[in-house]
């Protein structure tokens, strides 16, 4: 048995003696951090310029890198030029554009049940495209969260150069102002109501998921500016944002996938279309609009919250 294990068993040795808790390390100032970074860069620079092995590796890496870059550029140019060469001539009628447009305009109302043909197009005929768009929003939110989210470990460990900048933001907090509180009290309900109107009327008039969601997200931002983030955190936590986004996107994917498999593009299916012009019409267009709107609202408020203070819902 080794010496230190016996000592540890006897209670003479404390293994955690030299390990300090991250909370006890004092924050170094910005100047110190800058100095350390500069020193580290200088050392790295000197080492990479003197080491022969690193030099050789770097040379071969750049040779391969340039070769791959040139090849991928040439391939991309070739593909794009080939596509352009195969495009229909400008001004000449070709069946691919004429027939599709004719079908959408003439039979759009009958086949999708939406008075607004644009909504019928983006959420019925071309719903796959909209599915991708809403997933792009969700992915962007996830990426911003990975990059900007400040958890407690980052702040406590002193790894953060701009911690002081983040703290400075609270000096200019306007949520104590009585003017903005009054404006928020009057405006936020109106904006949210208008957002619901635009969201629910997507199949009957201008509007739909993206614009309605953007208005609702703006209302949330207005609310958090007027009453502070603590008020929003009681309802709108990070968990709730994630659950809402996930449920909306999953519902969209499953519902539209089901429709695509059972009968897309105006084929018969058993989802009722309703009377055109009513709120509950257009088959799946209204639920899909609501799903898209929720994702957009969550994404907008998530962006604002992450950029403003580095977290959603206070954790």
């Amino acid at each position: 048995m080794k010496e230190w294990i016996r000592k540890w068993l006897n209670g003479d040795l404390d293994l955690l003696e030299n390990v300090t808790d991250a909370a006890e390390v004092p924050d170094s100032t910005r100047e110190e951090l800058k100095e350390q970074k500069k020193e580290f860069r200088q050392r790295l620079y000197e080492k990479t310029n003197t080491d022969a092995a690193i030099q050789a590796e770097r040379k071969s890496f750049y040779a391969i890198y340039r070769g791959i870059a040139v090849i991928s550029c040439v391939v991309l140019i070739g593909v794009l030029l080939f596509t352009v060469a195969n495009m229909p001539r400008y001004g000449v009628e070709n069946p691919r554009t004429v027939e599709v447009v004719k079908r959408y305009v003439e039979k759009g109302l009958q086949e999708t049940g939406a008075v607004n043909i644009v909504a019928g197009m983006i959420l019925d005929y071309r719903a796959f495209d909209t599915l991708g768009e809403s997933h792009v929003l969700f992915t962007a939110l996830v990426c911003v969260m990975i990059l900007l989210r400040l958890d407690k470990k980052t702040i406590r460990g002193g790894h953060l150069d701009d911690y002081y900048l983040v703290k400075q933001d609270t000096y200019f907090d306007v949520s104590k102002d009585s003017i903005i509180r009054l404006v928020g009290t009057v405006l936020v309900p109106c904006i949210i109501l208008f957002g619901f109107y635009v969201l629910l009327n997507g199949q009957n008039g201008p509007g739909g998921g993206f614009s309605g969601g953007a208005i609702m997200g703006a209302a949330l931002i207005m609310f958090s500016t007027a009453f502070g983030f603590d008020t929003v955190d009681r309802v709108f936590t990070r968990k709730m944002l994630m659950i809402t986004s996930f449920v909306s996107l999953a519902f969209y994917s499953f519902a539209k996938g089901y429709v695509f498999f059972t009968g897309a593009n105006g084929l018969e299916n058993h989802i009722p279309k309703g009377t055109p012009g009513a709120i509950l019409s257009g088959g799946l267009i209204l639920p899909l609009d609501i799903a898209v709107g929720l994702v957009v609202a969550c994404t907008m408020f998530g962006f604002y919250s992450l950029f403003k203070r580095g977290s959603i819902g206070g954790d």
């Binding site: 200019f172 003017i179 903005i180 404006v183 009057v186 405006l187 109106c190």
Partner: peptide
Amino acid sequence: VFMWFTSPASSHFLSQVEYF
């Protein structure tokens, strides 16, 4: 109504930022 409600508020905060 809405413009007269929102525009003074935004002007107020802009001028506050300038003041600070």
